[in-house]
Simulated scan of single mutants.
Amino acid sequence: MVHELLGINNNRIDLSRVPGISKDLREVVLSAENDEFYANNMHLNFAEIGSNIKNLMEDFQKKKPKEQQKLESIADMKAFVENYPQFKKMSGTVSKHVTVVGELSRLVSERNLLEVSEVEQELACQNDHSSALQNVKRLLQNPRVTEFDAARLVMLYALHYERHSSNSLPGLMMDLRNKGVSEKYRKLVSAVIEYGGKRVRGSDLFSPKDAVAITKQFLKGLKGVENVYTQHQPFLHETLDHLIKGKLKENLYPYLGPSTLRDRPQDIIVFIIGGATYEEALTVYNLNRTTPGVRIVLGGTTVHNTKSFLDEVLASGLHSRSKETSQVTSRSASRR
């Protein structure tokens, strides 16, 4: 989330544009090696981190009974850090994390990201086309949703429902135009399909075909999920799970050695040319934690967020080849 909204470059976050930021916090470092709080919380979600910061502050207040202050929001936490330099000195880096979480909270509210993220999860993890289309169209009408977020929603819709019998991409493209989304982002919708659409994908990212996967998805739908914002698991999770269980398809993942993999691998090195993501890093962390006897290392040429990934798509030249497609889409929408 930090990398997606603020950007992390060599463990550094540029906070210089944050309203009212102090000089010593214009650039902060997130490093598990030198930051105990970050090391203990780096794999937790947004709400859990906020709760842990609050607990730390409340523990400090118990030691200083005269310095009681309500801590019911991120704003309260920021005010607490500013008002009590003793805590700032004692806590070391916690004030930095209060600032980062505070800025994340501001952006989430300003850009309506709770609703946007919930619909993104629905697009990635569910198969209800009617509901997905209705929710995307609703958010495209919301003035708080930025052109970047609007385009990303349409990209996810386009990738998932590319060949659906009721595909409404032309209409959504017209909605983007009416919303004032720049041509750059509208072109990217077609470019992303060309980059990762069904025609070029080696596996189906959205609709499981085998009976076990379909059953799991069905049961998950019946039970619901504890957190609608963390439903998605990257495709790497399924790939590694199959590798550990000896179920990888040889035609997709050829290997050297015996004709069959009899023993479960103990050391697995994954290197993704083109870039990995922090979500994939979390998947590897969880698999290492829950699979005794297996050690997985993840590497890549970069660590992507949406912006850096789309920049690469632009640099690939796909956007120029998709110009004609974009124009055809617009004309089709106009005829409708």
Results as ranks from 00 to 15, higher is better:
6 L>M: 08
6 L>Q: 01
9 N>Y: 09
9 N>P: 05
10 N>W: 06
11 N>C: 14
12 R>F: 04
13 I>W: 12
13 I>E: 05
18 V>L: 05
19 P>D: 11
20 G>F: 09
21 I>W: 07
21 I>T: 08
24 D>F: 11
25 L>Y: 10
25 L>F: 12
28 V>F: 10
29 V>F: 06
29 V>T: 05
29 V>D: 03
30 L>D: 02
31 S>K: 08
31 S>R: 08
33 E>R: 14
34 N>H: 02
35 D>K: 00
36 E>W: 10
36 E>T: 12
38 Y>T: 01
41 N>C: 13
43 H>N: 07
43 H>M: 12
46 F>L: 00
48 E>H: 01
48 E>C: 01
48 E>S: 03
51 S>A: 14
52 N>T: 08
53 I>T: 03
53 I>V: 07
57 M>K: 02
59 D>I: 06
60 F>V: 03
61 Q>M: 07
63 K>Y: 07
64 K>L: 10
67 E>Q: 11
67 E>G: 03
68 Q>I: 00
68 Q>S: 04
70 K>W: 08
72 E>F: 12
73 S>R: 14
76 D>H: 07
76 D>G: 04
76 D>P: 05
77 M>N: 02
77 M>T: 01
78 K>S: 08
80 F>D: 12
81 V>C: 15
82 E>N: 13
82 E>T: 11
83 N>K: 15
83 N>V: 04
83 N>T: 10
83 N>F: 13
83 N>E: 15
84 Y>P: 02
84 Y>M: 02
87 F>Q: 05
87 F>Y: 11
90 M>F: 12
90 M>T: 14
91 S>L: 04
91 S>H: 03
91 S>A: 11
93 T>G: 04
97 H>F: 13
97 H>I: 13
97 H>P: 11
98 V>A: 07
99 T>R: 09
99 T>M: 11
101 V>G: 00
102 G>P: 09
102 G>Q: 11
102 G>T: 12
103 E>F: 05
103 E>M: 08
104 L>S: 00
106 R>F: 13
107 L>K: 02
109 S>G: 03
109 S>W: 04
112 N>G: 13
113 L>Y: 01
114 L>A: 12
115 E>N: 05
115 E>H: 02
116 V>E: 10
118 E>N: 06
119 V>S: 09
